[in-house]
Design a protein around this nucleic acid. Structure first.
Length: 222
DNA sequence: GACTGATCATTA
DNA sequence: TAATGATCAGTC
């Protein structure tokens, strides 16, 4: 197990050292077996990168490198550098919605500073052959922040009003709310329209591919 | 090809 | 159950 990086520079240097390597090489360095496909190992790539970079494992609702204020996200891309999937941000509280202040939200805290690690993700490339792209540190600019805030406020207001089940993945320009659970039978508490409690499928916030696509394009342009 | 709802592994 | 890590797969 690698030690956790002590500084932002150390983290970035480790990240840059991964660029161009494929997942097979990375797995071998860390003595981890490579799955045939990701059907039953959907988080495998993310966990491999965590290990390589020395993120402390665990299921804390916190940034991966808390002491550095950095959240780590791998993002599967196609041959043109476009994201193949939406990006999960955080689970959503559906009850005890205390504040509708975006800057107090878990979404804001996680997205303040993200280390993006693009990885080839097309399914016709064997897992071990998929290459890691150039990682980069991202902070949302004022425009991006404003878009995120608008979507977040709209969605959280609906939750607070007891309208969780009326929210579809179409709400929001850049941020969407979708199921995030073991399956559709999983239940968690949420607010009803008259303020009482009911049970619904847990939800999470995801970044739409259009948004992450622009984030990537801005960095790799020119 | 993008989008959306559903799903998988693991840990605590 | 809920948090972490996400991708799968059917439909539009």
């Amino acid at each position: 197990m690698k030690s956790t990086p002590q500084s932002l520079n150390e983290l970035l240097q480790r990240a840059e050292a991964m660029a161009g390597l494929n997942l097979g090489e990375l797995a071998r360095l860390n003595q981890i077996p490579v799955p045939q496909d990701l059907k039953r190992d959907k988080g495998w790539v993310g966990q491999l990168i965590e290990i390589e970079l020395g993120a402390d494992a665990g299921s804390k609702a916190q940034q991966d490198f808390l002491h550095l204020g950095v959240e780590l996200k791998t993002i599967p891309i196609n041959r043109y550098g476009k994201p193949l999937e939406t990006t999960f941000v955080t689970t959503t509280p559906l009850i005890n919605v205390k504040s509708l202040n975006f800057y107090d939200s878990l979404v804001f805290h996680k997205l303040q500073q993200v280390l993006w690690v693009p990885v080839e993700g097309e399914r016709d490339i064997p897992i071990a052959d998929r290459r890691v792209g150039t990682p980069f540190l991202w902070q949302p600019d004022p425009m991006e922040l404003s878009l995120l805030r608008q979507d977040w406020e709209e969605i959280m207001e609906m939750i607070a009003m007891g309208k969780v089940e009326n929210i579809t993945a179409r709400h929001g320009e850049v941020l969407q709310l979708r199921p995030k659970a073991a399956n559709s039978k999983a239940l968690t508490e949420s607010i009803t329209e008259n303020g009482t409690i009911k049970l619904t499928n847990p939800r999470g916030f995801y970044l739409k591919t259009q948004f992450t696509s622009q984030v990537l394009a801005k960095v790799f342009a020119g």
